[in-house]
Design a protein around this nucleic acid. Structure first.
Lengths: 198, 198
DNA sequence: AATAGAAACGGACTACGGTCCGTTTAGTCT
DNA sequence: AGACTAAACGGACCGTAGTCCGTTTCTATT
């Protein structure tokens, strides 16, 4: 056991750490050069000077790799709506927080576009992920705070979040020329109606 | 030009028709035996006694094949909400029709499960398809009839339909044990709130 | 420093969806 | 019937994600 490890976390071998770093660097390079589509697992292995098996051992799948690449920005997003300043973070009325949540999520999806898409590919990709569960719980909590009284607020939260599905948002933006602003407005309308109704 | 052809439809060669039939039969056989997952394009070609190129020439992609397989049931579904008896078809109040639409769609997704999922795989699979556009227009129309006054009812229709996304529905059902009834109830709640709010 | 065992490595291998293009065949026109 | 053309055919081929297992490397222990 290494001294700087918490007892719960399995120790990571030094070569593993080194390779993980190499892979992450190589992945960002490949994406910078040719976009997300240019990042294939074979190319990544080659670019990082590592065997293909190592790539899969590390990330499990291509989607898992994308999730890792998004890890920092996702954590930042979560920090915003959990602890950040109002109206996204605590302190604002729940309805305002809901509206801000959607707007921020839309901005996030727009910013990381293809990366988010690739992270959600693969069976059950975008629904099983811990982050999705967190969004659901967060929206559910805000609904409750807003006085939402109805059976199964959790299902309603899921429905609202389904509205923010990256594939849908990016499809509307890229193939129908819908702007982020219009999407945010539509989200506000939806949330307002759901929360306002008796 | 064949006499029994409408001028707009390109004629279909007899061998092509024969092979299409063979392929459809073979596809249903494979699915019956081993489920949708067992239907690979190679196996299908072999089972039908046809070259692989022919399979792709006919259906374009695996998702396209699934869409073809679903064609009849999808047409039936459309006929129901377009021309069928109330509350799904015309004659009932728009809000009731919306509620019935969701319930029917949920039942449909449950019935054809994996087939629907496979039809929606492949880039932009479930959003580009004509059927999806029809659902959107239908929901939009019902919203308008229900007195929904708001900018962009079309976006709201899309949001509502996003809630009925097969992947989401089946994930809730299969991995969380949610029943169709609860999903239908949640849909009714959502629709009621959206339509009722000022 | 030597050793043992666990963890990580690497790359050949598989399965699959999809493409390409030379070959065959159905339908038509004379 | 014979020939001509456009359409359809077939299956080798490609790129990709993901698996498997024999080999190598790290680290703790003595």
């Amino acid at each position: 056991m290494r001294p700087d490890m918490t007892p719960e976390t399995a120790a990571e071998r030094s070569d593993a750490a080194r390779n993980r770093e190499r892979l992450l660097v190589a992945a960002r390079e490949l994406i910078e050069q040719g976009g997300v589509a240019a990042l294939t697992m074979d190319r990544l292995a080659e670019q990082a000077g590592v065997g293909k098996g190592t790539v899969f051992r590390r990330f499990g799948s291509r989607a898992g790799l994308m999730l890792t690449l998004l890890n920092d920005s996702e954590a930042a997003f979560q920090a915003q709506f959990l602890f950040g300043p109002p109206p996204l973070g605590p302190g604002a009325p729940p309805q305002d927080r809901l509206i801000a949540f959607g707007a921020e999520r839309i901005a996030y999806v727009v910013e990381y576009g293809d990366l988010v898409l690739a992270a959600g590919s693969s069976p059950g990709g975008k629904l099983d992920v811990p982050a999705a569960a967190l969004w659901d719980r967060h929206v559910e909590m805000l609904l409750r705070e807003a006085g939402f009284n109805s059976p199964e607020p959790w299902l309603m939260a899921g429905s609202l979040n389904a509205t923010l599905d990256p594939e849908r948002l990016l499809h509307l933006i890229r193939k129908h020329g819908v702007t982020s602003e219009r999407l945010a407005t539509s989200w506000r309308d939806l949330v307002t109606r759901v929360v306002t109704a008796a």
